[in-house]
Amino acid sequence: DIEITTNGEEDAKRVIKELQKRNLEYHIEVHGNQWVIKVR
């Protein structure tokens, strides 16, 4: 598993777009303004 910590929603959406392009499965956890994306 890979864990990507982003700085808020805009940053997270940019990362998610890339993950979707590669058809990767991911899970999002929001901790305040930090979005942690866990990639399987």
Rank of each mutant, 00 (worst) to 15 (best):
D1T: 13
D1Y: 15
D1E: 13
D1A: 12
D1L: 14
D1N: 12
D1G: 12
D1V: 14
D1H: 13
I2E: 06
I2K: 05
I2N: 04
I2W: 15
I2P: 03
I2L: 13
I2V: 10
I2Y: 15
E3I: 15
E3P: 02
E3A: 10
E3W: 15
E3N: 08
I4V: 05
I4P: 02
I4S: 01
I4K: 01
I4Q: 01
I4A: 01
I4H: 02
T5P: 05
T5W: 15
T5Q: 09
T5F: 14
T5M: 12
T5K: 11
T6E: 02
T6D: 01
T6N: 02
T6F: 11
T6Q: 02
N7G: 06
N7Y: 15
N7A: 10
N7H: 12
N7C: 15
N7V: 11
N7W: 15
G8I: 08
G8Y: 07
G8R: 11
G8Q: 08
G8S: 15
G8N: 15
G8A: 08
G8H: 10
G8E: 07
G8V: 08
E9F: 13
E9Y: 14
E9K: 10
E9M: 10
E9V: 11
E10L: 09
E10S: 08
E10K: 11
E10A: 12
E10D: 10
E10R: 10
E10Q: 10
E10I: 08
D11S: 11
D11K: 06
D11L: 09
D11V: 08
A12E: 01
A12K: 03
A12Q: 02
A12G: 05
A12D: 00
A12Y: 07
A12P: 01
A12I: 05
K13M: 15
K13I: 13
K13F: 12
K13N: 11
K13W: 14
R14D: 06
R14P: 03
R14T: 07
R14Q: 09
R14S: 06
R14F: 08
R14A: 11
R14L: 10
V15Y: 06
V15H: 04
V15D: 00
I16G: 03
I16T: 03
I16H: 01
I16V: 08
I16M: 08
K17E: 13
K17S: 11
K17I: 12
K17A: 14
E18L: 09
E18M: 11
E18C: 15
E18N: 06
E18S: 07
E18V: 08
E18Q: 10
L19R: 00
L19G: 00
L19T: 01
L19N: 00
Q20A: 09
Q20I: 14
Q20V: 12
Q20T: 09
Q20W: 04
Q20S: 06
Q20D: 10
Q20R: 11
Q20Y: 03
Q20L: 11
Q20M: 11
K21E: 13
K21L: 12
K21R: 14
K21I: 09
K21W: 06
K21P: 01
K21S: 12
K21D: 10
R22L: 14
R22E: 04
R22M: 12
R22Y: 09
R22T: 05
R22Q: 11
R22C: 15
R22I: 05
N23P: 01
N23L: 06
N23A: 07
L24N: 02
L24V: 11
L24A: 05
L24P: 01
E25H: 14
E25R: 09
E25D: 11
E25P: 07
E25T: 10
E25V: 10
Y26G: 03
Y26R: 00
Y26W: 07
Y26H: 02
Y26D: 01
Y26S: 01
Y26Q: 00
H27L: 12
H27K: 12
H27M: 13
H27C: 14
H27P: 00
H27A: 12
I28E: 01
I28Y: 05
I28R: 00
I28N: 00
I28P: 00
I28D: 00
I28T: 03
I28S: 01
I28F: 04
E29K: 04
E29D: 07
E29W: 03
E29S: 09
V30S: 04
V30F: 08
V30Q: 09
V30N: 04
V30K: 12
V30A: 04
V30H: 06
V30D: 01
V30M: 08
H31T: 10
H31Q: 11
H31E: 06
H31P: 00
H31A: 09
H31G: 03
G32D: 13
G32V: 02
N33H: 06
N33E: 10
N33S: 07
N33K: 05
N33C: 07
N33R: 03
Q34E: 09
Q34K: 12
Q34G: 04
Q34F: 11
Q34H: 13
Q34R: 12
Q34C: 15
Q34I: 12
Q34N: 13
Q34W: 08
Q34V: 09
Q34T: 07
W35F: 09
W35P: 04
W35M: 13
W35Q: 08
V36T: 04
V36P: 03
V36E: 04
V36A: 01
V36M: 02
V36L: 08
V36I: 14
I37W: 00
I37R: 00
I37D: 03
I37E: 02
K38P: 00
K38C: 11
K38G: 02
K38Q: 09
V39A: 02
V39C: 04
V39K: 00
V39I: 13
V39W: 02
V39R: 00
R40A: 12
R40T: 14
R40I: 15
